[in-house]
């Protein structure tokens, strides 16, 4: 059974844990360094990226997570998690943490404030759709404005990448944890 840590400093971490568990993984919340021991993968959930940045520092998680990501730990970031994994954050705070695991330039709230939050049907590379697209929920979502070499774009909305992957590091601008469709989580688990 794969052991997946879900960063639980703030945000929609519980929904991720429930979906991972329903897919047969052993998922547990991560708030402290000691809880990182023995994990096979890490999920960084949606929430407020500036709040998570501050708490990553307060709970002494920045260096251990940087090391794990540098060592090739599989990581899946959603929304704020995508921002944390980016190499370049636009409209962020100067003190905001970027783990530099994905060569993307990402604009916080790039689609606008809450009134611009939306749902859309996606076709995702590597996921079986048949007649059933993936219903994706975007909440004050980050917009990927440019991508670097080697990055795979797995889905996009109106030409903007919304799901990307570089080897073991995956990220979505949307929230697969807000629907009952488990296909994105399942694809990540299958890659482990």
């Amino acid at each position: 059974m794969k052991k997946v840590g879900v960063l639980a400093l703030q945000g929609a971490f519980q929904a991720h844990i429930e979906r991972l568990v329903s897919l047969g993984a052993a998922a547990h919340p991560i708030r402290f360094r000691s809880e990182l021991d023995g994990i096979d993968a890490l999920v960084m959930p949606g929430g407020e990226s500036t709040t998570m940045s501050l708490l990553l520092g307060a709970n002494d998680l920045v260096a251990p997570l940087s090391d794990l990501i540098g060592d090739g730990l599989p990581v899946f970031g959603t929304c704020a998690g995508m921002i944390l994994l980016a190499s370049d954050i636009l409209d962020g705070r100067d003190d905001q943490i970027a783990f530099n695991a994905l060569p993307i330039s990402v604009r916080r709230n790039g689609y606008g404030r809450q009134l611009a939050s939306f749902e859309a049907d996606l076709q995702i590379t590597g996921i079986e759709h048949e007649e059933n697209p993936f219903r994706a929920v975007f909440i004050r979502a980050p917009k990927v404005e440019s991508v670097g070499a080697g990055l795979e774009v797995l889905a996009n909305v109106d030409g903007d990448p919304v799901m990307v992957r570089l080897g073991p590091v995956w990220a979505t601008a949307f929230h697969p944890e807000l629907t009952d469709d488990l296909r994105v989580h399942a694809a990540f688990l299958k890659s482990l």
């Binding site: 939306f118 859309a120 995702i124 590379t125 909305v157």
Partner: peptide, 10 residues
């Protein structure tokens, strides 16, 4: 399975 442009936004 191609990443293709979407889409109706709701």
């Amino acid at each position: 399975n191609k990443a293709s442009g979407s889409s109706e936004r709701t």
